[in-house]
Design a protein around this nucleic acid. Structure first.
Lengths: 339, 339
DNA sequence: TCCTTTTGTGAATACGTATTCACAACTATT
DNA sequence: AATAGTTGTGAATACGTATTCACAAAAGGA
């Protein structure tokens, strides 16, 4: 491995001088600089960023702990985050894990990354205290811990209310709800939103129509979708707590021979891009303009680069909007809701 | 920052001993080990992996340079790669870039990653020589350089022939071809496959139906899709060189009011998972079992961990199969080709 | 001409770890 | 009881860089 010492030797200068040239320090004569540069060129020298990090105490690297890419939502946030970070001169270390995060966090801590983006924190996650104590700049997105933390999220309760109200206005009353585990803020709030909207409309929720489960487990969504449609009195609409769940649900239902929305309406939350595809046209709530991941990484890098650390949490909650498409229709009608 | 020296001081031992405990070295008495462990616990010490890497000359990190996640193909490979690497104890640094790779490669080299996965090499990429010279373990997937290199790819020519023959058998003759730039092996080979199949069937290719462009540019696919359908004599089938292009093409065509496959058949290559969705049902060629990314990372890690470096290239070419779904139909018929 | 400041450079050190070497204290063998 | 081998530990060093300090040479001011 060729080091700055080798460059120094070839250029006939000291290692300090090579370092000075590399870091564009002032006070190095043009002739010396040229000698060093040509030695670098000749030896094909690349500075060892590991060694540099050790002394500068900065790695120009951020860590992203995200949910699986099988969920289109995380695809879009990951893409935005990595691209933004790259453009700002940061490298990105990624981990797609939702549990066993303790191990991953130790890895992240040991890697001395400059900051951390975390999408999979639980409401009462013991990890949160550990993160807080570590003093590493950290921004949550999509989910948040129960208390404190910097985060960028949707108003999930509002999003769920928008969708639920839309279904109610279409005349649906037997509305099923397929929900991820409520130990995370996202699903907790969406469930509350659903329940509030139903209560406000004076419509009783049939507990047999509500399933709370882990959507990461393969086949789980499909299982509950089939269960719902096999009921003696099936729902007329299925409200899925994410677009990803809605997509899997649609797939299962259509495979059974049902038609959407003629036989059953389906809606989701997140408004991921595939939902707008002409062949899908999934009704959803979310944001068309802002990407939670991008907002989160923007704020993280701002935090990393500013001198004095902020004393207050930065907590951003975006208002979602409703996107009515063709998977939802008036109860009993044959055509889609949008014209 | 708490270091192993601090732990040593608290435990009343030397830093070497702390290191020994950390690395499960033999010859450390149970009492000493216990003292060290409790000091570690008390100080919440996490080893600095940066410093460790500097001396061990191994970072337990691989770099992934991939195409954009807006292409579902790269979503699936990225997911597989990161998960496999994580499971094997490697961290993954990701970059979603297809050009300006020189800069990224310097970053990768400087970061002293243990290996490199690269999905976006061009046929005659000058970067390839640089990579080769650097002696860094590297596996290409999806694309390959013209000469040499370790890679895992599909037999792209065969894939294109399968799809083209399928369309020909359905009676199509005016078959359009939407293709990515042919300076990369993937698109080059797929184009050759298309041309060979057409020639073998004795069907003349109308040059006005063939468009070669950069599918990364937003709106580009849609532009050509509209152009095709606005022709005085539009194609009866559109063969897209990737599923991603096919999805965008379908979206544009359906937005114009055409029906697939009644008005025009559409097919792709890659067989990404969304293509099998009941609402999409895109005819495609690819592999249902193997993920190119996963195969590539498996081989990369094997290469990293084996003592003596192999002297020969490992070049794997998977045979693709055809998946006939409902976006392709016999020319002039109303219903889909699959029953 | 003498003193002060500026400019360019090298020697030395620190970052936090793994590892080699030396060595004392035991244990086993004769 | 003397020797050889083993075990547990610390001191010293290396990894490749940035940075501080010291200092010589050159430039500037009187």
């Amino acid at each position: 491995m060729v080091s700055s010492k080798d460059v120094a030797r070839l250029a006939g200068v000291s290692q300090s001088t090579v370092s000075r040239v590399l870091n564009h320090a002032p006070n190095v004569s043009p002739e010396t600089r040229q000698k060093v540069l040509s030695a670098i060129e000749q030896l094909q020298y690349t500075p060892n960023l590991i060694a540099r990090s050790l002394v500068t105490r900065s790695t120009k690297t951020i860590a992203l702990i995200s949910g699986t890419l099988r969920n289109g939502f995380f695809v879009e946030t990951t893409d935005a985050i990595v691209n933004y970070a790259t453009a700002r001169g940061y490298q990105t270390m990624v981990y797609f894990k939702e549990d066993g995060l303790d191990e991953v966090f130790d890895l992240v801590l040991g890697s001395k990354v400059d900051g951390l983006l975390l999408a999979t924190i639980e409401l009462d996650d013991p990890l949160w205290e550990k993160i807080d104590r570590s003093r590493i700049p950290c921004v949550f997105f999509n989910r948040k811990p129960r208390e404190g933390g910097n985060y960028v999220i949707f108003d999930n309760q509002l999003a769920a209310e928008l969708v639920a109200n839309h279904l109610l206005e279409l005349g649906h009353e037997r509305i099923a709800f397929l929900c991820g585990n409520t130990n995370v803020s996202t699903f907790h709030d969406r469930k509350v939103g659903f329940e509030k909207a139903m209560e406000a409309a004076g419509v009783k929720i049939d507990p047999a129509l509500v399933h709370v489960f882990d959507p990461k487990i393969p086949g789980e969504v499909e299982k509950y979708a089939r269960k719902l449609m096999h009921m003696a009195h099936p729902p007329s609409a299925i409200f899925c707590s994410t677009d990803m769940i809605a997509l899997l649900c649609m797939d299962a239902i259509m495979a059974m021979g049902y038609r959407i929305p003629e036989d059953v309406s389906v809606a989701g939350i997140d408004n991921i891009s595939i939902s707008a595809h002409q062949a899908i046209q999934l009704t959803s709530a979310g944001h068309a303009k802002f990407n939670l991941g991008e907002l989160a990484v923007e704020y993280l890098i701002e935090m990393i680069e500013q001198e004095e650390k902020p004393t207050e949490w930065k907590q951003i909650t975006l208002k979602p909007e409703l996107f009515v498409r063709r998977t939802t229709a008036r109860k009993g009608e044959r055509s889609g809701a949008s014209r």
